[in-house]
Design a protein around this nucleic acid. Structure first.
Lengths: 219, 219
DNA sequence: CAAAAAACATACAACCGCGTATGTATGTAT
DNA sequence: ATACATACATACGCGGTTGTATGTTTTTTG
């Protein structure tokens, strides 16, 4: 590939940032489409429209790139969740809607990034340590959002967290299953079941006297 | 490596079966320790105590080996679950104990095989089709076991299945998380929460008049 | 017991991804 | 304008994986 003219007005910092962003985006995209193992440095560079030399200049190794992609991934997800929380505060999103949205995330192609990252981290000590730390921060942020979400239900903090995490784990487990099981009815039933359970849990909660959410009839 | 003397009494079929089993076992083991991508034909052969020529003689490709390993994996898990179901029938296993045991599976190293298989299947059409079919059969078998498990509670079939699958999905999602989050307290809380939910669901079920499980069961 | 077939072992060639080294262009400071 | 730093490109060699081809041992067959 030839040298691009590279508009003269740009500062080094600009170029650098743009290049890095482009590389990280390409990494994210390739992790999704080809998986961690099959994603090669040449691929990433090509996808980002540059050579391996450039890549190597900005990121010492593929892992550094994957970590940056992980950061981007978490940032995107956090933004989503936060916006949902905003909608909830504004009264524009019910509990059921919230669950549906999280499921949209978990069942989407984008969620599969998580699997790639996790399986990669499992066999790579450095990667695992890096991602684990970031995961912890991410979950703390989620807890904050969730607490805010459920503040109006009057639930205790510990209960809020356990319900958040149960929801996420359930949907995550369902999301994992979508790879080998294509059965929309099955997932819809699970979602419905979970919504019912959540509603019951909230209604039965000790401090839920003030604003009990509408309880849906069983089944 | 030298030729092993190979006891003369064995028939070709015996040798073949033993070799294949050895290769499949080695594949399973390596998928766990190194992951799908890093597992190479040379590795597998070496672990099985033979050369790549032997491997290639019995399995045309790595994928065939992985599929065989998947079969073995499912067979082992099914055996476990079935034995648990047997204990339940014999009155030797409560619902809580059952959940604990499934969690032991999901949080164990062995469960990570699932992640390896799934992420591998995601980028390999042939593998995905093969594993998906086997997964379907596996779940049908599970449904059978589960129905038997809950027969005494008087729950309807559809409810049994949804509760089974919710349990599995929840624990699977938790299992996935163990890679990047080491927090026993966190998982214990989730388990406790789920046991409570399950007990409530069973108690509140329409036909649960005959043998409602005790709330704090201790055989 | 000889021949065939199956179960293995060994060897070689080709490819691929990676690290590294080194060259060139562009921006920046003085 | 010169010198230096940064951003990128190109090239080479190494290790590792795979496919294939071919040799050797064990079992079965007649």
């Amino acid at each position: 590939m030839e040298h691009l003219p590279a508009r003269p007005g740009r500062t080094q910092e600009d170029r650098s940032a743009a290049t890095r962003a482009s590389l990280v985006q390409a990494t994210l995209s390739l992790l999704l489409s080809k998986g961690y193992a099959a994603t090669t440095a040449v691929d990433i560079a090509a996808h980002a429209g540059m050579t391996r030399g450039a890549l190597n200049h900005h990121f010492a190794s593929k892992d550094e790139l994957v970590i940056a992609a992980f950061d981007l991934h978490l940032a995107l997800v956090t933004t989503d969740i936060r916006s949902y929380a905003g909608l909830v505060s504004a009264g524009a999103l019910s509990l059921n809607d919230f669950i549906d949205r999280v499921w949209t995330i978990m069942s989407g192609r984008f969620f599969m990034l998580t699997l790639e990252e996790i399986t990669a981290a499992r066999h790579n000590d450095y990667l695992r340590v890096q991602l684990a730390g970031r995961t912890r921060i991410f979950h703390d942020a989620l807890d904050g959002i969730w607490n805010h979400f459920f503040a109006q239900t009057g639930l205790a903090g510990a209960e809020i967290e356990v319900m958040l995490n149960a929801t996420l784990c359930l949907l995550r487990g369902m999301g994992v299953q979508t790879v080998l099981r294509d059965d929309p009815v099955y997932y819809r039933r699970l979602l419905q079941f979970w919504k019912t359970v959540m509603a019951e849990q909230i209604a039965a909660a000790p401090h839920a006297a003030m604003k009990p959410p509408r309880k849906e009839p069983r089944r």
